[in-house]
Design a protein around this nucleic acid. Sequence first.
DNA 1: ATATTTGCCTAACGACCGTTAGTTAGGATG
DNA 2: CATCCTAACTAACGGTCGTTAGGCAAATAT
Lengths: 194, 194
Amino acid sequence: MATAIIKNRKQQIHHTAKNLFRERGYAATSMRHIAGELGIEAASLYSHIKSKEEILQLICFELAEQFLKSSEELQRKKLPAKELFKQAVTEHIRIITQNMDSSVVFLHEWRHLSEPFLSDFKLMRKRYENFYKNIIRAGEKEKSFKYQNENLTVFVIFSAMNGIYEWFTPKGKLQPEEIAEQMVEVFLNGILKN
Amino acid sequence: MATAIIKNRKQQIHHTAKNLFRERGYAATSMRHIAGELGIEAASLYSHIKSKEEILQLICFELAEQFLKSSEELQRKKLPAKELFKQAVTEHIRIITQNMDSSVVFLHEWRHLSEPFLSDFKLMRKRYENFYKNIIRAGEKEKSFKYQNENLTVFVIFSAMNGIYEWFTPKGKLQPEEIAEQMVEVFLNGILKN
DNA sequence: ATATTTGCCTAACGACCGTTAGTTAGGATG
DNA sequence: CATCCTAACTAACGGTCGTTAGGCAAATAT
């Protein structure tokens, strides 16, 4: 239907908030900023949302659930470590590139969550980290991966993937699939020429 | 001398600010927070500093200059690409781990700088990025490095190094030198066995 | 046609923001 | 001893913050 693209006010607010939270940070974005972008008064936002933090919560947990959901689906596939690794990286990068604004907020603004949301969020992140730790650990057991420190290795991979927002533009030459492919290549084989 | 460790008020303020800016972010840290940590009134800070942003400027540019200085020194050594790469990564990680609070502020709070400082900062960052691009480009010409996309490769390396603050603790098992060594290993050879 | 709901408005609340002005106590300097 | 300097203070400024209350007109439902 033609109206599928038209967002209702609540969605518009969340969309605008994502954008501003990414651009200026959560703390430096005021309700009046968000309202201004939509051409309404700050007080009017409260007809649609409960609070500023509620918006942040939605952004953070929506993305956290996407990451966890994709990890669970991948786990069910029972793939060999190397293949699982490739698909996991590809999925992670797909989610990030498809949700650029949310991703930046997810990565850097979660600390402004209040309890108990803050603790919940940290737990979900830990679960997702463990998913990756298990992949590379399995890879080592299968004798297909080698590394010295598990934590360092996983965080190198996470940091590289999560840093994509620093340089990725949807209109650039590199598309998500290629980014994933090339990153996997670097992670697996490095940049040294035999 | 015994008093070498004792900081004057201005240094104390900068030290406290670094810590709070890292912990809560620049925008969410008030002058009253900083003052409170030091047991004085917010207005008293202005006997020592000019403005809140001046503190941010000092943090950002101090670190930017450290990075650039180290890159210039390395460039003068005229090393082969692989060796230069190793030393550059090691230096970068040394600076980050020795300035954890500043590093986080440097990486994430610079956007709150006002002009012309913002533009100056971006330029310095660009210069430093080019230093790394030149390394891997030289490595390719020397036929010691291989990669598909220069930008992606450099940003993978940067992101991994700059993400160290997420997990590094000075009291942990991994020390900066070992981190550098192991990261270089991943960058150069990857985690795939044979 | 009437009643209800929706989505906005204005006005305002108390709190906190960065910063300035003016002052004062105490120590250092002449 | 007189003077200057340092580092703090109190008080206050104009603004902005997130949020609430109450009202009103248009759209929707009955």
